Lab assay of single mutants.
Amino acid sequence: VIAMPSVRKYAREKGVDIRLVQGTGKNGRVLKEDIDAFLAGGA
């Protein structure tokens, strides 16, 4: 999974398994917005 360390930390704090999140950034990078969208109700 491609993600910046700050995004990985954010996901950990929110209790999200970053491997389950679909990245929308360049080359499938997971963004902070992707974590929020995942929490809001889905992949």
Rank of each mutant, 00 (worst) to 15 (best):
G28H: 07
V30A: 03
A40P: 05
V16D: 00
A37M: 13
V30G: 00
I18Y: 04
S6G: 12
V21R: 00
A11D: 01
A3T: 07
V1Y: 06
G42N: 15
I2T: 11
G23M: 02
E33G: 11
Q22H: 14
I35G: 00
R12K: 15
V21P: 02
K32D: 04
K32G: 04
A40R: 13
D17T: 04
D36A: 04
Q22Y: 09
R12M: 15
G15P: 00
L31F: 07
E33L: 08
L39F: 07
L39K: 05
D34M: 01
L20D: 09
A40G: 10
K26D: 11
D17P: 06
L31W: 04
L39Y: 06
V16H: 01
L39G: 04
A11M: 01
G42A: 14
M4P: 10
S6W: 10
D17A: 05
R19H: 11
S6L: 08
V16S: 01
G15N: 09
M4L: 15
K14P: 00
R12N: 15
R19C: 08
E33I: 11
K26Y: 10
E13W: 08
R29K: 09
K32V: 09
G41Y: 12
K32I: 13
N27R: 10
A40W: 10
G41E: 13
F38H: 08
G28R: 07
K9C: 12
A43C: 11
V16R: 00
D36Y: 03
I35S: 00
V1S: 08
A3E: 05
E13H: 09
T24H: 06
Q22N: 11
T24I: 03
A40T: 12
G28M: 06
G25P: 01
L39I: 14
L31I: 10
V21L: 07
Y10I: 08
R29I: 09
G41S: 15
N27E: 10
E33S: 14
G42K: 14
N27G: 14
L31T: 13
E13L: 13
E33K: 14
G25I: 02
D34F: 00
F38G: 02
P5A: 12
R12A: 15
K32F: 10
D17W: 04
V7E: 06
R8D: 08
D17I: 05
V1D: 07
E13R: 11
R19A: 12
G15Y: 05
G41M: 14
R8I: 15
A3D: 05
L39P: 04
A40D: 11
V16N: 00
M4N: 15
D36W: 04
T24W: 03
K9Y: 07
I2H: 07
I2A: 08
G42L: 11
F38S: 04
N27A: 09
S6D: 15
P5H: 10
Q22A: 12
P5F: 04
R12P: 02
D34T: 01
I2S: 09
F38N: 03
R8P: 08
A11H: 01
D36S: 03
S6Y: 08
V21N: 00
T24V: 02
V21W: 02
I35Q: 00
D36K: 04
Q22W: 09
I18V: 05
F38Q: 04
G23P: 09
N27K: 11
G15R: 07
E13K: 12
D17L: 05
K26S: 10
L39E: 05
D34I: 00
V30R: 03
D17M: 04
K9S: 08
D36P: 01
G41L: 14
R12W: 15
P5W: 04
D17Q: 05
E13T: 10
A43K: 14
K14L: 13
D17Y: 04
K14W: 07
A43L: 15
A43S: 14
G28L: 04
G42V: 14
V16P: 00
G25V: 03
D34P: 00
R12E: 15
G15W: 05
G15C: 07
V21C: 08
I35R: 00
Q22K: 15
A40E: 13
V16W: 01
G15E: 06
G41N: 15
G25K: 03
K9L: 09
M4W: 15
E13Q: 13
K14M: 15
G15Q: 07
A37P: 01
V30S: 01
M4V: 12
Y10F: 04
A11T: 01
G42P: 13
K9F: 08
R29Y: 08
L20R: 11
R29L: 12
A43G: 15
K32R: 13
G23Y: 02
E13D: 14
G15F: 06
D34R: 00
K9H: 10
A43D: 13
V7R: 01
I35T: 00
F38Y: 15
S6P: 06
M4K: 15
V1M: 08
A37E: 10
Y10P: 04
R19W: 08
R29F: 08
K26T: 12
R29Q: 15
I35A: 00
E33D: 11
L20T: 07
V16L: 06
K14S: 08
G42E: 14
V30L: 05
R8K: 12
G25A: 05
K26A: 12
A11C: 07
A3N: 05
F38W: 12
V21T: 03
R12C: 09
K26L: 13
A3Y: 03
K26E: 14
R12L: 15
R19K: 11
L31P: 00
S6F: 07
I18F: 03
A40Y: 11
L39V: 10
V7T: 07
L31V: 10
N27T: 05
D36G: 02
E33Q: 13
G23F: 02
A37L: 12
R8M: 09
K9D: 15
E13N: 11
M4Q: 14
L20K: 11
S6H: 12
R8G: 04
R29D: 08
I18H: 02
D17V: 04
I18M: 06
A40M: 14
V1N: 08
V16E: 00
V1P: 11
L20V: 10
